[in-house]
């Protein structure tokens, strides 16, 4: 079920939280929503789930507009809000049954759905406990279970792994990936590794605008620009090596790595690779090549680059 966000603008007082934001998510896609705090991630999710109405623009979920038929849109969405609010005084089973009824799960299917969710989310031992007695990790699972209870086509998760320990994070990520195979998923995070591990596509927003959009690989490639190599050569004086490398045709800039006097950072000219030329140079002069590594930008660098203050 496709989600189409079309030119939405949301203003809080004098502050623009979303500024003419447009994107679409295709069926079966897991979209990672990245951005610094206050970028508009949560506001966008609240708009898709019909909690907040955008001032301008429209959102359709599977072709249904949030303005025309919010109830139908909400039926199709499973939503885990930020901070995972829950009724702490309710037992897990009662809570899931309450949400299931609200989501319009047919009465005779409800017990089966609840026990399936309890199993999928690993809550078997905790199902009769009050939610208030559960640890944070288990509460998060209850949050996921309630989002999935009516088997929605679209899943929207606002920072699903905050406050979990590393084991729980991996479990929840696995769960999201498994679910994501057949559903449209949007998840927000500011942990980049998480987005890289779970998402097919990444959308970075800043100040209510999209600043980057693509698969993690595409983003890396786009930000990469020219090839950068870290080169370590021994067997000659550093200055000699520096001059020789600099004189290669494919090389545009050579930097000395300050804390290690045998290492150079070599930037090739656009579209060229200098790996072969450097290797040949060493062979010709009888130098030892101790290191030849291409430096990749990771998502963290890209994130910082596109969201930094000007």
């Amino acid at each position: 079920m496709d989600i189409v966000v079309e030119k939405i603008t949301k203003v809080y007082g004098t502050q623009k939280a979303l500024d003419d934001l447009s994107f679409r998510v295709k069926t079966g896609e897991v979209l990672g929503f990245l951005g610094p705090n206050g970028a508009g991630k949560t506001t966008t999710m609240k708009a898709i789930t019909c909690y907040l109405a955008p001032n301008v623009g429209d959102i359709t979920v599977g072709g249904i507009s949030v303005k025309k038929d919010p109830e139908l849109v909400k039926k199709r969405i499973g939503y885990l809000p930020e901070n995972n609010p829950l009724y702490l005084d309710m037992p897990v089973i009662d809570y899931l049954s309450f949400i299931g009824e609200l989501q319009g799960v047919v009465k005779k299917d409800l017990p089966a759905r609840i026990s399936e969710m309890v199993k999928v989310c690993g809550l078997t031992k905790e199902k009769y406990k009050k939610i208030g007695e559960l640890s944070k990790g288990y509460r998060q699972r209850v949050g996921l279970a309630q989002a999935l209870i009516h088997n929605p086509d679209v899943l929207i998760l606002d920072e699903p792994t905050t406050g979990l320990d590393p084991n729980q994070i991996i479990e929840i990520r696995d769960l999201i990936r498994r679910i994501g195979q057949e559903k449209t998923v949007i998840l927000s995070s500011h942990i980049l590794a998480e987005v890289e591990a779970t998402c097919d596509r990444v959308l970075i927003i800043n100040k209510g605008k999209i600043v980057a959009d693509g698969t993690p690989d595409e983003l890396r490639k786009a930000a990469q620009g020219n090839e950068i190599l870290r080169v370590g050569v021994e067997g000659a004086d550093r200055q000699v090596v520096y001059d020789a490398v600099k004189s290669l045709v494919t090389v545009s800039v050579v930097d000395l790595v300050s804390n290690n006097n045998q290492l150079l950072e070599v930037q090739s000219s656009a579209g060229e690779s200098s790996k072969k030329a450097i290797f040949d140079l060493c062979v010709k002069n009888g130098w030892y090549l101790t290191e030849l590594v291409s430096i990749e930008k990771n998502l963290e660098d890209i994130f910082r680059e596109v969201t930094k203050e000007n």
């Binding site: 609240k46 909690y51 939503y79 809000p81 901070n83 702490l88």
Partner: peptide
Amino acid sequence: TGTIELLLTKPIN
């Protein structure tokens, strides 16, 4: 507690 958001994002007005 924020549960109002949970409630109002269900198919209920």
